[in-house]
Nucleic acid binder design. Structure first.
Lengths: 214, 214
DNA sequence: TTGCAAACATACCAACCAGTCGGTATGTTC
DNA sequence: GAACATACCGACTGGTTGGTATGTTTGCAA
């Protein structure tokens, strides 16, 4: 369960390498199919080191999900679309950015949390919770921009910023599944383009509203 | 590798029970975490029967995916929304139907093919192919109605019926992941409602004017 | 009734797997 | 420099897993 590095400053050693191995291997082969020895081999450490840093394979799963949360938060915080002043442009820029990063092999750009939780939601509550936090936490950041855009531009009623943000995560997760099933990236790209068009339509003022601005 | 029942008509026995056990257990625990013995226990047969009907665990995976294709095709062919004369109403009726069937436990309504392919896309080409066929085959049926609706009603340009059909599958697959992560069904429902609104907006130019609440 | 193949069941195995344990090397503290 | 802590090593273990070898039963045609 617990796993936080013990206070001090352990040089980037076995622990972080094991977490990075997990981030990669689980997306490549899945959680159950990734053995502890696979992880050790990839990280270049021994089994002794693994169980020194993690109480169990499940504990590593939780720690890796938390690591994913940290990594993605930093990654999107630094992304260029964040610089837009208009929140609607940040929302659309986010979707363009998500589309642009679909490069390379599937395990490089798919979502670790989504992959993992799909497999273990029924068998490991701690991992499920960590993955849920990762996904809903990211959605909350997107929701903040959506809420600001709704405030600034007004919008066709009938939904909340939170639900649209979660919907965008659903589209992305589903796009990854389609890409895995077909082996093609362009189906994922097209799905994100549909989502972008949806957001544009939602924020496009109606004829009535254009004549009669707030 | 191959798996098709050998020509004749093997009465509903161990084989079909094993396939149904796979459909359930894989959605419950994932493919790798489901052992051959788990499947045998659930199906009420022995290991000997398992390997009499399937050359390997992988062969069962392929057969189960094909079984899923057959089951779902029949299920949607008989659904009430199919009776609508207007293809657009069939498309919207399809989405309402997908929303309505989100009842009971997660493993009862989630997509077997999507669950399975996410786990094995990199480790089993035969299974991946069978899952791909299942998903794209179903999407093709949806695409037929979308294409007819586009023909009948006209639509904002910029996309094909096929890509919108695949997008709808992405939304559904992603909605399942959100439901698994959060343990809640309503996030999936709301995502499908977003998708339905998107389709309505796409077809709005020629659809009747509707009054939105302020 | 016999013959025979498909449909099961029982017993077993070699490989594998998560986790354990005694031990070593290298600091850090007092 | 003694006492202690952290990081890491790798052989080992008890249980599990996919798969096999070898029966036994069942359905049915000749």
């Amino acid at each position: 369960m617990t796993d936080v590095p013990p206070a001090a400053n352990p040089r980037p050693g076995a622990r972080i390498r094991l977490l990075e191995a997990a981030l990669r291997l689980v997306r490549e082969r899945g959680y159950a199919a990734t053995t502890v020895e696979d992880l050790c081999t990839r990280a270049g450490v021994t089994k002794g080191a693994f169980f020194h840093h993690f109480a169990s394979k499940e504990a590593l799963g939780v720690a890796a999900a938390n690591q994913w949360t940290t990594n993605t938060r930093a990654f999107f915080a630094e992304a260029p679309y964040r610089a837009h002043a208009d929140p609607l442009e940040r929302v659309l820029g986010y979707l363009d950015f998500r589309k642009a990063i679909l490069r390379g092999e599937l395990p490089e750009f798919t979502c670790f949390a989504g992959t993992l939780v799909q497999e273990v939601f029924g068998t490991s509550a701690p991992i499920r919770t960590a993955c849920e936090a990762s996904i809903t936490g990211h959605a909350a950041e997107v929701a903040a921009d959506i809420a600001a855009a709704m405030e600034r531009h007004g919008v066709r009623a009938g939904f909340t910023a939170e639900s649209l943000a979660l919907h965008s995560q659903a589209v992305l997760q589903g796009a990854f599944i389609l890409a895995k099933a077909t082996g093609r990236t362009d189906v994922a790209v097209e799905s994100i383009e549909h989502l972008r068009r949806y957001v544009e339509l939602l924020f496009q003022p109606t004829a009535r509203e254009r004549k009669d601005p707030p």
